[in-house]
Design a binder for these strands. Structure first.
Lengths: 247, 247
DNA sequence: GCATATTATTAGGCTCGCCTAACAAGGCAT
DNA sequence: ATGCCTTGTTAGGCGAGCCTAATAATATGC
């Protein structure tokens, strides 16, 4: 018997099968090939060999044409996958406030690659939020309100940012367009929404990243800025949505 | 020309190649097959067909036996991957305080499956922490101190939890073992460390999950508790590390 | 009991992405 | 120039994991 810690290495696909079987057994008391195929949205012909593989790994009990049952090891593995799934779903849903279906999709995609170490840390984050009412009600509420619902820095500054710590008050918030050539700033927020925001994020306009204004075309329309050692051209309107604090 | 938003669907492997090429070009000014193979830890024979595929997709410029260059589209795609990578790495490193190498591994594994939507939300989280000094210095510092460095609920209770919100003060913190048969509680924290903690998390002992004490064996050693509709047996010592608030 | 419908298995293909090993093309030294 | 060494390409294999289509086993209706 491989006692406490057996680091079985399952593929993502097999983990999915295991998870599906666990849920089917929990919900309906049994799991047949057809149900599994339907739940996983694959054809029945793909399920049989997968069950064979799981059976060879000792994770399920399966006699041809009989109901599928999890072994003890299989149940452990299934619970592990489900716990990761649940944790991730709740992170995207409760912390990042994504819609349920999107949070679910995200969790499905990531659950197979999240390490136990990262899982541990993420749980501690939830524990902290869950056990510390102050953190939860204040910080999380503010985050949801300021950044997700009403993402305008002025309001946020009034509501929370400028309120307590004097050290940052003298830091000047500019947008990138206002930086003088040769000057640098640390990105604090990208206020653009939708596709433009997406594009800017994709380019690497992430918080804490340092950008330098290189030069602006006459009239200021394309401006060239550099970040991470490479140069990019931005429309003036885009540059104006990037809030920085000058270095 | 596929203007603003072209939703090219790259496989994880091709994204990795693109990322590698981008970094090699940025660092050394050129990228050869051998360098790419070395950086990605694959054999040179695997690289050529990958370059062919990227070339067919219009993401790189590549003449047989010449240096590799990114097209404009390719560079955009590479930047997008890198931005996700960077963001994730920093999440695991700065927020969850994982060691650099572990954070890096985690980022590598997840970067290919994180949706733009989730990326957006995660960026807003960073923006919030970055633009709101109060949040950052108070909340994050407390989290790191209370949950990651010194994970003992008593200290945490003194330092932050019991300090402000009176509503929760009357909630009794118990451990699962102290629950009477038939009674339920909401998990707040799993204090066990190491392998035992891992096992409990794997079983689904996650914050906010409701558990019910079913029964305890005479002497209290295995105790049976149920969560998510299924029963589990726990050692007494394990049950005592699970902190709940009774419902 | 026998025909039909449902369900499961198997066989044969396919893609992706890796491998190894053989082969091709230049660069460099003698 | 000849040959070696480094580098790149190609061919052939392999495993995962999906597909379809044919077949086998079980259940159900008449």
């Amino acid at each position: 018997m491989s006692s406490t810690t057996e680091p079985i290495n399952l593929t993502g696909s097999l983990e999915d099968y295991l998870e599906t079987i666990f849920l089917l057994v929990a919900d309906h008391g049994f799991a047949r090939v057809r149900d599994i195929a339907k739940a996983r949205d694959v054809k029945a012909g793909s399920v049989s060999p997968a069950l064979k593989r799981l059976s060879d790994l000792g994770l399920i009990r399966y006699e041809r044409r009989e109901y599928v049952g999890l072994t003890l090891e299989g149940e452990l593995a299934a619970r592990r996958v489900l716990a990761r799934h649940d944790l991730l779903r709740r992170f995207f849903s409760e912390i990042l406030q994504m819609p349920d279906d999107a949070a679910e999709r995200e969790a499905c995609a990531i659950e197979h690659v999240l390490s136990p170490e990262a899982m541990d840390r993420l749980v501690r984050l939830f524990e902290f939020l869950s056990a510390c009412p102050e953190s939860q009600s204040e910080w999380l509420r503010r985050f949801h309100h300021c950044s997700l619902v009403q993402p305008e820095l002025e309001k946020c500054e009034n509501a929370c940012c400028r309120s307590t710590l004097p050290s940052r008050i003298d830091e000047k918030f500019h947008n990138v367009f206002q930086l003088k050539p040769g000057h640098e700033g640390t990105i604090r927020q990208v206020r653009a929404q939708g596709a433009v925001r997406q594009r800017l994020l994709d380019m690497g306009m992430l918080p804490q990243v340092v950008v330098r204004m290189e030069r602006a075309a006459p009239g200021g329309d394309p401006v060239w800025i550099s970040l991470n050692g490479s140069q990019l051209a931005l429309r003036r309107a885009e540059a104006e949505t990037i809030i920085v604090t000058e270095l």
